[in-house]
Design a binder for these strands. Structure first.
Length: 619
RNA sequence: GCCUCGGUAGCUCAGCCUGGUAGAGCAACGGUCUCGUAAACCGUAGGUCGCGGGUUCAAAGCCCGCCCGGGGCUCCA
């Protein structure tokens, strides 16, 4: 629908003759209307009553601004080259008229289908002349998955489950020795938070040149600076290596899928997330929000029997996309494009699924331990259906035993989604918000949906149980947890730090003055040759200043080189964790550092080794 | 989507209430200093005050509209 909207001192018009067969009946009589908004209107193909209402709603709003409440709807075909058929056009013009009357607008309408003569006087103010286009809103844009709708009215109740198997309603639990669990429960149940400050990690991610918002993209799609890219890359490697060790086969699958693919579209309805949609030629595509599709489609086509179960398949999705509402986004805590390891395991029956589930639970604990996130840093949340709990009490309790502290439990009376049991490790940040890191689900529905089958001992086709696990949660979110944890340390008066293996610079060498740059570089190289990230602050600044900057960069060890060190063959090593300066031979430092990083992936410095050669990305 | 705060130098921000030559610190650049564990000193350069319109002799500032972003709420397999 196209409307040319004119604020007129007056308009005079007179029907001259019918132009089309469907024209309305009208008298060939002159009409005059004063101080009126004239809507020259063309109805186009695809317009319907909803467009008419939409148009009038906006016109009404506009009338308020101009302090006018009188309109003339004037059918005017010449505005469009894509006109609707006259019969439906007339219907919609009438719908506009009705909508306007309903909105208490004084409404006039020129007859439809006539050749008319008119004289018009348009006012001179800037808002007097407006052209507008209204389109029917495409349906798929409004598509909300059934799961999202179901989520909104889900019925569940909350408990605390202790390691000995007591299930206590949340209201009756004594939280006095479980402060973080109390925070987690409060967050999950009441959804009450009131925080004015910025989340500390968003400031840190920029100050430390890890990541930043990218105004040139969609919100929640971040840019990563070299140091952040390095950390992310190390975490990715670590998770992938751990999954390989576990026996999962790494694959790679497309990031976009056909919206109308039959199995995919029914899965979309079972998943509570909003998608990015892309149109390409004739296809509607959506960007994946997890690796499920790609892996399930592979497994659908693969053939395997009970002998190969449990069968484990893994992908590090870079990226998964979820079009979260803009207000939900927060730095590294929640993005619209994020990197998520996703591992599925197919199990022959519930017994095998439970064994595997436990194995993965342990694996996730170990993995977070590798990031130096321990049991004090996260809380366990478990969710299940009432029915599943009733027949698997001991099994569920055995999960809680593994962390040896009470867990928050959500019990669903009915199965709304595709799983009957899931758990997450939740990190509680400085604003007392909880975010899931590791998670695993027991899925009893998707094998059937994707027609994934295995052959059992008797040669019959069976549907396996599917486990969905993100062993670390989103990689970005891991960095968020590390930053928030570091901030907690800082609040307690301790130096904020990263685990050594993730530190962009592990050791910085600082020559006392520029006379010592050369020997300092020699020492730097010696250390670097042992597979460490060591850089050299060769800038002509005072020693104090360079030490200070090393500290603000959270560098774990700082080595000063001057005459004293050259004479004694001892390095002066400043240890960030303790704040102490200790003399030690180069070997001792090497031993200390390699011990601390044993078993973890390594990558070289992502920046020039000389600080004088580095650009500033932020600030 | 709603509420709220904001957009001024690369960064952090002041100036806006009460209209009258656009500021500071840090960073950058040039120089002096050759330095011993969290900020040496001097200087130089750097701005379409988010965009559009209005009011005014005069707008970063006042008014209207728009755009963008943060945070909160809702939501979170």
């Amino acid at each position: 629908m196209r409307i040319l909207q004119l604020h007129c001192k007056y308009i005079v018009y007179k029907p001259v003759k019918k132009e089309i067969g469907e024209a309305e009946e009208a008298e060939k009589k002159e009409s005059r209307i004063d101080d009126v908004i004239v809507l020259f209107t063309a109805i186009e193909k695809g317009d319907d009553e909803s467009v008419a209402v939409q148009a009038i709603t906006q016109v009404k709003e506009f009338l308020g601004k101009l302090k006018v409440n009188r309109i003339l709807i004037y059918p005017y075909a010449h505005l469009s080259i894509d006109l609707a058929a006259p019969s439906s056009a007339l219907r919609i013009v009438k719908a506009m008229e009705r909508a306007a009357q309903d909105a208490k607008i004084e409404t006039y309408r020129a007859p439809f289908g006539w050749n008319k003569q008119f004289t018009i006087s348009v006012k001179g103010h800037p808002l007097a002349e407006q052209s507008r286009v209204f389109l029917k809103e495409p349906k798929k844009q409004e598509k909300v998955s059934e799961a999202l709708k179901a989520e909104e009215k889900r019925e569940s109740s909350w408990y605390i489950l202790s390691p000995v198997g007591d299930l206590v309603p949340v209201m009756d639990f004594d939280f006095s020795t479980h402060k973080d669990l109390a925070r987690f429960s409060k967050y999950e149940i009441s959804k009450m938070r009131a925080s004015q400050e910025m989340p500390p990690h968003t400031k840190l991610m920029r100050k430390l040149e890890i990541a930043d918002y990218e105004p040139g993209s969609d919100p929640g799609n971040l840019r990563w600076y070299p140091k952040g890219r390095l950390m992310k890359s190390l975490l990715e490697q670590f998770v992938t290596a751990t999954m390989a060790e576990y026996g999962a086969m790494e694959v790679e699958t497309p990031i976009m899928y056909d919206f109308h693919h039959p199995t995919l579209s029914s899965y979309l309805d079972r998943f509570p997330a909003r998608q990015y949609l892309i149109q390409s030629e004739e296809k509607d595509l959506f960007l994946r929000f997890a690796a499920c599709f790609g892996q399930f489609l592979i497994l659908h086509d693969a053939q395997f029997s009970y002998r190969q179960l449990p069968l484990k398949i893994y992908e590090l999705t870079r990226y998964s996309f979820r079009r979260e509402k803009s207000g939900e986004l927060a730095g590294l805590r929640r993005q619209r494009a994020f990197t998520m390891p996703d591992c599925h395991a197919l199990c022959s029956n519930l017994k095998q699924a439970k064994e595997e589930f436990l194995k993965r639970f342990n694996l996730c604990m170990r993995l977070l331990e590798g990031l130096e996130l321990g049991l004090d840093d996260y809380e366990l949340g478990i969710r299940f259906t009432r029915e599943f709990y009733d027949s698997n009490r001991d099994f569920i309790t055995s999960l809680v035993k593994l962390i040896d502290k009470p867990a928050l439990v959500e019990v669903f009376e009915e199965r709304i989604l595709y799983w009957v049991l899931k758990w997450e490790f939740n990190f509680i940040d400085n604003q007392e918000k909880a975010s899931a890191l590791s998670t695993d689900q027991l899925d009893v529905e998707n094998a059937r949906r994707y027609d994934i089958t295995y052959i059992d001992q008797d040669g019959a086709r069976q549907y396996p149980i599917v486990l969905h696990c993100s062993p670390s949660g989103g990689i970005e979110r891991c960095i968020y947890a590390l930053l928030e944890k570091a901030y907690k340390l800082q609040k307690k008066g301790k130096p904020p730090m990263f685990p050594l293996w993730l530190s962009p610079t592990q050791i910085r060498v600082i020559p006392v003055s520029d006379k010592f740059i050369e020997p300092a570089e020699g020492i730097r190289k010696k250390l670097a040759d042992h597979g460490l990230r060591v850089d050299l602050d060769d800038r002509p600044l005072t020693m104090q200043k360079r030490i200070r900057e090393a500290e603000t960069e959270w560098i774990n060890y700082v080595v000063a080189i001057g005459q004293k060190e050259l004479d004694s063959n001892q390095l002066s090593v400043r240890n960030r964790a303790t704040g102490e300066i200790k003399g030690m031979p180069i070997k001792e430092l090497l031993k200390k550092v390699t011990k601390e990083t044993r078993g973890k992936p390594w990558r070289p410095l992502p920046l020039p080794t000389q600080l004088s050669k580095r650009p500033q990305f932020y600030g």
